[in-house]
Design a protein around this nucleic acid. Structure first.
Length: 107
DNA sequence: CTGATGACGTGTG
DNA sequence: ACACACGCCATCA
């Protein structure tokens, strides 16, 4: 486990409830603007303890829902947090978007 | 070690 | 604006 993945986990863990972010945003926050794929890969290795359901692609689509124990769980979890998910897509993604780099800057 | 793939993103046509 | 192609970095075969 490299610090890179650990950092990803830490960042995803501190995503506020009812907020979502993108792989690219996390990658950028970690200093790897092109590491979006690595973030997704890290999610694949991640435990269900990690709120990976709050992490979606740039389009706001639940691209990784199929990788969950129960694909619908991702949308259900987001919906439970107040996120509107339709057709595997987050509505008002920009409104619910959470910028990790901004939070890291505040911290 | 080389080739291919992936929960992505950006650039060009 | 939409469609196609390439790049990135790490892991798997």
């Amino acid at each position: 486990m490299n610090d890179f993945y650990k950092d990803i986990y830490e960042l995803v863990k501190l995503i506020p409830n009812g907020r979502v972010t993108s792989y690219g945003a996390i990658a950028i926050a970690l200093g790897k603007p092109k590491g979006a794929r690595l973030v997704g890969y890290a999610m694949n290795l991640c435990d269900k303890t990690l709120p990976a359901h709050r992490v979606v692609n740039r389009n706001g689509w639940l691209t990784g829902k199929m990788h969950f124990a129960h694909p619908d769980e991702m949308a259900e979890r987001l919906r439970a947090e107040g996120i509107v998910v339709v057709n595997d897509q987050i509505q008002d993604f920009k409104t619910h978007f959470w910028d990790p780099s901004a939070e890291l800057g505040s911290m």
